[in-house]
Design a protein around this nucleic acid. Structure first.
Lengths: 368, 368
DNA sequence: CTGAAAGCGCTTACAG
DNA sequence: CTGAAAGCGCTTACAG
């Protein structure tokens, strides 16, 4: 490959002059620049190699989005897609490349975090980007340590909350309380809860009382805490509320635990932590000839595009804005700003057709 | 930042030993490796910086997808989204990062291709990736020259066709002929054609006879040639067929020229080169209270997800497969294979509800 | 305005 | 099994 040195030799100038011709042409006379560029063109020199440049300058010209799980998953998950749509709205990305950094955090990687962290694992963590948007990682994911020790500017979306790192999120605890409040307000007292994943340890099934206090993912932790607060403020013992964990984020995993829930408990309403879980609940209800909302009320979370299609009652959260704002904040951070604060975006309940009062209206507790 | 040198110093070994501990631990004794790794952990060394490594090894651990226009556009275009979904299905991407390389090729950049090429413009072209999938570029886009002179392995999806570079595509010419054949077969003789962009020169409006022979984008060129062949094999002078160019790929641009077409010509059918154009036609028809298909038949191209929603007659092409196959081929190329051939995937006509015989059935020409 | 020199952080033959 | 040395392609103070 033709290098800067070859061009310098052929043009009869120093290598530094060639570098200047590209990066700071004002440092050279116009004639000199023209001569160098012509020589470069003649030799078929493709311009400065970014890897060499980067070693010196410390910049590679790309930002990353670090996503849990595989890219294949990221491209099927509605929320992640919306987040990416928001990120690419940033005009700065017309000049920079966007690198997607998959980060499968399965049971195996959790079992051997040291090794994973040590060997760099993902090129992701090896300095391939100038800044990174982290989306929904468990609190103690080793990638976060690596990012920190590399001093890579970062903004976190949703989770985890890390001291000194700006977070873009919503008030998940409050939103979760609104879900329960809505359902109880309709008169439901037999309520089941479906959550995605509280710890990435492969668990799937009912969530024990102990596990309800031992969660390592901020978003689901906040929401579970919200459920606890709202139930207990209504005088209900949260530990008695049946809660099941899908162990993953897809419909199929959700469907498995929803069947378990319905097999073992006579609930009239299901509260879930994502629209994907809620849609799985709709499908399980259909399997069993339960009518929604007459026999079973279902509430989701996210207001993903499918939520409207399924006429789902849900919490709307601004995923596209999250992405756009996170990108904007990251660019501020990268340009040296030290005053980038976390932001909590607004959410709101959207009541559609999957929630209604229970058919056999129970007498509310307070009227007993 | 802690570097390999620091670790070597602290561990009392050579820098090379530290490098081996990470990249080829079998070259060292187990005790040595352990000692080095512990020292690294103690110092908070995040593992080898890829930029330094890459300068030596020539590998950065990422592949790129080079997309025309901005990323913001890429994430709204249905076909591009499907292509990306296919790309990320490749398992290799669990180890590699995926870098999206936007490449706005507007009139401005075309006006100054030299400069753009010379200054590297996009970090994209500066060696940030080990291989690249190029999607739909004009024949002579300067980025292609840069990629070539860098010897970056590449696979091209759709366009352009470049000697020695494997292409993944469909038989666009044949597919275009099928569109026209379908519409003429229904009895239409007053047909208008809407194409996306034949040259990236900012033109929008009717396509002159000269321009019909001067196209620099393979896909639209092949399709226009297909239209010509099919019309002329039916004895129709293609140069008399009204054809309009949107100058872009979005619905709004399409709507503008569709209105022009309908204003100036009394057509009973519109043939388009994408579902997006076809959906724009549906909307313009609705504006004018023209019923589809009674007053106007419309045929699209792609069979994007929206096509079914709009009950659009269209050509199905396997976009997800294109992405997946292109990625697979790229990885073969990157692992040294020299026997990677172009592949042409199958397409087929899907007849839905937007095409029908014209209301006032004209006597077919052959019966005159 | 121009150029020589140092060095960014690594890997990899090569010698022992 | 281990280490010293060269060098990957560039940028950037620095000196002139």
């Amino acid at each position: 490959m033709t290098t800067m040195k070859d061009v310098a030799l052929a043009a009869g100038v120093s290598q530094a002059a060639v570098s200047y011709a590209y990066s700071r042409p004002s440092k050279l006379s116009a004639g000199q620049v023209r001569h160098i560029m012509q020589t470069a063109a003649r030799l078929g020199y493709p311009g400065p190699n970014i890897v060499g440049a980067s070693l010196r300058s410390g910049k590679v010209g790309a930002i990353g989005v670090m996503l849990m799980d595989t890219l294949a998953y990221a491209f099927t998950d509605p929320s992640t897609k919306l987040l990416l749509e928001g990120v690419v709205q940033s005009h700065k990305l017309n000049e920079l490349a966007l690198t997607l950094l998959p980060l499968p955090h399965d049971a195996a990687s959790l079992a051997a975090p040291k090794r994973r962290m040590a060997d760099g694992g993902q090129s992701a963590l090896r300095g391939l980007v100038d800044g990174v948007i982290v989306h929904s990682l468990p609190d103690d994911h080793p990638a976060l340590l690596v990012l920190r020790s590399r001093d890579i500017p970062m903004v976190i979306v949703d989770a985890p909350r890390l001291p000194g790192v700006p977070l873009v999120g919503i008030r998940d605890r409050e939103a979760a309380r609104e879900q329960v409040r809505h359902v109880m307000g309709l008169g439901h007292s037999e309520i089941g809860v479906i959550v995605e994943r509280l710890r990435p340890d492969g668990h799937r099934g009912e969530v024990s009382v102990a596990r309800r206090h031992d969660m390592v993912e901020r978003v689901n932790r906040e929401r579970v805490e919200g459920y606890r607060e709202e139930f207990e403020s209504a005088g209900v013992d949260f530990d008695k509320i049946p809660m099941f964990e899908a162990g993953a984020f897809d419909e199929d995993s959700a469907a498995l635990v929803i069947r378990e829930l319905l097999d073992g408990h006579d609930v009239t309403a299901i509260v879930t932590t994502s629209d994907t879980m809620a849609i799985a609940a709709l499908k399980v209800a259909r399997e069993r000839d339960m009518r929604v909302p007459e026999d079973l009320s279902i509430i989701g979370f996210d207001d993903a595009p499918d939520a409207e299609t399924f006429d789902l009652t849900t919490i709307h959260q601004p995923m596209v804005d999250k992405g756009h704002i996170a990108a904007t904040m990251l660019f501020e951070l990268m340009s040296g700003s030290t005053e980038v604060d976390s932001v909590m975006l607004p959410h709101h309940l959207i009541v559609r057709g999957t929630t209604a009062p229970p058919r056999t209206r129970k007498v509310p507790r307070s009227h007993k």
